[in-house]
């Protein structure tokens, strides 16, 4: 009879908790975990410190995101030029008519929109920028609930004035590589 080892235990635990594990753990096969120190090896160097590949992950993720943002911003600026009276508002919270940031009852969090475009004091477009594959359902769901709950305004940073988002204006998702 095969003894019950780490592999069997790991498989059971892994199946239960894999959703909470860091992304890099998805590459692990539970059957291969015969000891915890062995399982940790791929992620550590000789000194027992985290590998450089993992270390540079923050930089890689940030740079990829910044690149997408740059492309998106360029596209929006081209489509809505300042010379034609358009104004771009970025990273703005949804607020109520008193200017307070509105939080979603379900998640307890606020909604910050990537880009809103206005012209003559009216908001005409709203954009969320993301990668080709990331799901934005949760954020759009949150936005809808916040708007139903009175979070229909943004603050113009230059004037300090509140601007109302038209009821029928929905945030469009733009995806970039």
């Amino acid at each position: 009879m095969m003894p019950v080892g780490f592999a069997e235990i790991a498989k059971k635990v892994f199946e239960k908790t894999s959703k909470e594990l860091p992304g890099f753990a998805n590459k692990l096969k539970p059957e291969s975990i015969r000891s915890f120190s062995e399982a940790d090896k791929p992620f550590k160097n000789k000194e027992g410190k985290i590998n450089e590949t993992r270390k540079s992950q923050i930089e890689a993720n940030r740079n990829d995101g910044a690149e997408r943002e740059l492309k998106a911003k360029g596209d929006i600026q081209k489509e809505f030029p300042e010379e034609k009276g358009y104004k771009i508002h970025s990273e703005v919270y949804l607020r109520d008519s008193e200017g307070r940031i509105v939080k979603d009852d379900e998640t307890g969090s606020a909604r910050r929109i990537d880009y809103l475009v206005s012209k003559d004091g009216e908001i005409v477009k709203s954009y969320e920028i993301t990668s080709k594959s990331a799901s934005k359902e949760a954020q759009i769901g949150k936005e809808n609930r916040i708007r139903e709950n009175g979070g229909n305004y943004i603050k113009d940073r230059e004037t300090g004035r509140l601007m109302k988002i038209p009821e029928n204006l929905k945030t469009e998702i733009r995806r970039y590589n």
Binding site: R54, Q57, I58, A60, R62, G65, R68, E69, A134, S135
Partner: peptide, 13 residues
């Protein structure tokens, strides 16, 4: 941005 790391980034919860 948070979203550049999660969910858009790699190896980050």
């Amino acid at each position: 941005k948070f979203s550049w790391h999660y969910p858009e980034g790699q190896n980050c919860t």
